[in-house]
Design a protein around this nucleic acid. Structure first.
Length: 122
DNA sequence: CAAATGACGTTAC
DNA sequence: AGTAACGCCATTT
């Protein structure tokens, strides 16, 4: 299971500290264009042992979705981000400053756990 | 299979 | 700047 998931995780893991990426951003890189829902849903299943920096993933509004679904602390994410050096403007983040700029090398460095699709040669 | 849910994005007014 | 509605689909029950 998880054909699209692995991709999402792979992308999210590439997000460097001090930067934040939006769902659309991750989705796009993960090849889930137009399906930001899947990205969020994927992170939903993310476990603290997956070593996935889900905290660096926020919505397009630059806000933290916040939901008492995880560790029970909505602030948790903010705390983690602040610890990375990210500043909060009120309750939002300046995407213009912390927006993760995926470098072409990054995208290529991402290891997509493909199963059947594709074939590469060529 | 069908219905309901969900860490969102985009468009339109 | 804020509200409202649609879209998109994997996961869960």
């Amino acid at each position: 299971m998880a054909n699209s998931y692995d991709r999402i995780y792979a992308v999210v893991r590439q997000i460097p500290a001090g930067t934040v990426a939006t769902y659309g951003q991750v989705a796009e890189l993960a090849g889930l264009m137009g399906k930001p829902r899947v990205v969020g849903y994927a992170l939903y299943k993310v476990a603290p042992e997956d070593e996935i920096p889900w905290q660096r993933v926020i919505n397009a509004k630059g806000e933290i979705s916040t939901s008492a679904f995880r560790d029970g602390s909505d602030d948790l994410q903010r705390i983690l981000l602040e610890d990375e050096g990210i500043e909060f403007e009120g309750n939002k983040i300046n995407l213009s400053k912390y927006r993760w700029q995926p470098s072409p090398e990054m995208i290529g460095a991402i290891d997509f756990g493909n199963d059947d699709t594709a074939d590469s040669s060529g």
